[in-house]
Amino acid sequence: MAEKITNNDIVQEENLVYKKTDLLTDKSLSYCPGCGHGTAHRLVMEVIEELNAQEETIGIAPVGCSVLAYEFMDIDMQQAAHGRAPALATAIKRLYPEKYVFTYQGDGDLAAIGTAETIHACNRGENITIIFVNNGIYGMTGGQMAPTTLPGMKSSTSPYGRDVETMGSPLKMTELVAQLPGTYFVSRQAVHTPSAVRKAKKAIKKAFENQKLKKGLSFVEIVSNCNSGWKMTPNQSNKWMVDNMFPYYPLGDIKVPEE
């Protein structure tokens, strides 16, 4: 019978299984408790670390909850005007074709005010990666209706629920950009469970690796929660997301390059 193993025996460098990547700064994230943004940030940084590409990557932060992404990602970054991130990424990639260039945008930024920049960057087939975090709401400004807000879903500007007759239907940007010849890889993922995180990371990694192929734009949507905006606990919001968001925004690859 072996001696009883203590916690101290386990917590040793040689037994390390998982720790936060060094490419995330030590700054406390500005997101609400339980918000999927933090996980999405981490996955992007883990991928850049695995690609050994800290020096070769330039990121674009949007306007919205992730406006301060540059505070947390230890890479060179630019903060874009609302919705313009794909235009910024376009220019940087054209001027530095060998760098990895990505945008990190929310649904208000990408699917409302930045629709033109998004569609045209996709249509030109810019060799960039777009990470699109869709939580169906404007989080930063206090829970207003977004283009992605579900039918009937309440928000501070659709207090009686989104009425599709007067407010339109949720915009499926990801399906939309998948139609464009300029997109090379389009996928929709989530980060609410361990298996979802693993799949999301695979998609994000592919979306970065694709940049070297120079075959067009890689677009990864991450359907996420906004527990503050939805007025739920984090775990409730993740369940609500599974029950309500996923039927409208089904997970999985939407456009996969032919092998």
Binding site: I58, Q78, A80, A81, R84, A87, L88, I92, R94, E117
Partner: peptide
Amino acid sequence: MVVLQAESEIAAINMVYAGAGAGKMV
């Protein structure tokens, strides 16, 4: 030199912002 016809004046100036931020003459 990179020359690009953007989708709008708004996109074009934001491309300039990014190029300038990356140290290039734009």
